[in-house]
């Protein structure tokens, strides 16, 4: 990451992709007013053309439109799950770090217990408890992803807790709560925010994985995982477009979001520039 030109290229290309994706998912559904679930069997499995830039699927539905709707659902799941996981993780981590003692030990053992179960398995367990839909998927991703944030926030709080400015606040009569809310939380928020953004692509991948396994959204609802899953059979018949475009729309925007998060992390913590953790 020594070259500032590469850095700038990464920032702008990521920002352009994220901007285009946001415009598409926000503007296309209300402006186009087409039904992405409209079946037209006379047009099934048409290759990409001007009329259908991404082609059509095995029920004659326009893939571009379905991809945009799918991306919308995946982004929604990713954003909400990341937000919930970050809020929970920050609260748990801050409580563990700021209170210490038994609270810390109990909460961190809880985190260890959650981490010891493979998180896809835990996620599957959570969605299996409910009817298929968006909220169980969000809950499943959130329940499995607050752990790393809790650890990050706890370690930050532990290192901040011993700084003299906390001593000064204690000496100035601040309560434990006041120290946590006024001095410790604002200091860890940039790290927690970064963890949240890095979590969005990860959450999107989880939604797709669950949908691909048939455990996520109902199969008629367009989500990137569902699209790839239903396209599997046509792929074997030589029809590549129903798999390629949803797959690309999963990879490119998640890489772009991770790229933006990477730029943010470089600003926040220049010493770790060489690492790229997704």
């Amino acid at each position: 990451m020594a070259d500032p030109r590469t850095h700038r290229l990464r920032l702008w290309s990521s920002a352009a992709v994220v901007g285009a994706v946001l415009l598409a998912v926000l503007l296309v559904p209300p402006l186009v007013q087409l039904d992405e679930q409209a079946v037209d069997l006379s047009r099934k499995l048409l290759p990409p053309s001007w009329a259908h830039p991404f082609g059509t699927d095995d029920l004659g539905r326009d893939l571009l439109l379905r991809c945009v709707y799918g991306l919308r659902i995946s982004l929604l799941v990713g954003l909400v799950a990341a937000l919930v996981a970050t809020v929970v993780g920050t609260a748990v981590g801050a409580a563990a770090g700021a209170l210490g003692g038994w609270t810390d030990r109990t909460l961190m053992r809880l985190v260890d217990a959650f981490s010891s179960v493979p998180h896809l398995l835990l996620g599957i367990f959570v969605v299996a408890l409910f009817r298929p839909g968006v909220w169980p998927v969000i809950a499943s991703v959130a329940v499995t992803h607050w752990l790393s944030t809790a650890r990050i926030v706890r370690s930050e709080v532990l290192s901040l807790r011993t700084r003299p400015f906390v001593d000064a606040a204690v000496s100035g009569g601040a309560s434990r709560w006041r120290v946590a809310v006024r001095h410790l939380l604002p200091a860890v928020l940039p790290q927690a925010g970064l963890a949240a953004v890095l979590m969005v692509p990860h959450a999107m991948w989880h939604e797709s994985a669950l949908s691909f396994l048939g455990l996520g959204l109902p199969s008629h609802q367009a989500s990137l995982g569902n699209l790839v899953q239903t396209a599997r059979s046509s792929l074997l018949a030589g029809d590549w477009w129903p798999t390629l475009f949803p797959g690309l729309l999963l990879i490119v925007p998640t890489l772009a979001i991770a790229g933006l998060a990477g730029v943010w992390r470089d600003r926040l913590n220049p010493r770790r520039r060489s690492e790229l953790m997704l």
Binding site: R163, P164, A168, A187
Partner: peptide
């Protein structure tokens, strides 16, 4: 405290 930098919330 001795070091004002660490004794003041930034």
């Amino acid at each position: 405290f001795q070091q004002p930098r660490t004794a003041a919330d930034p």
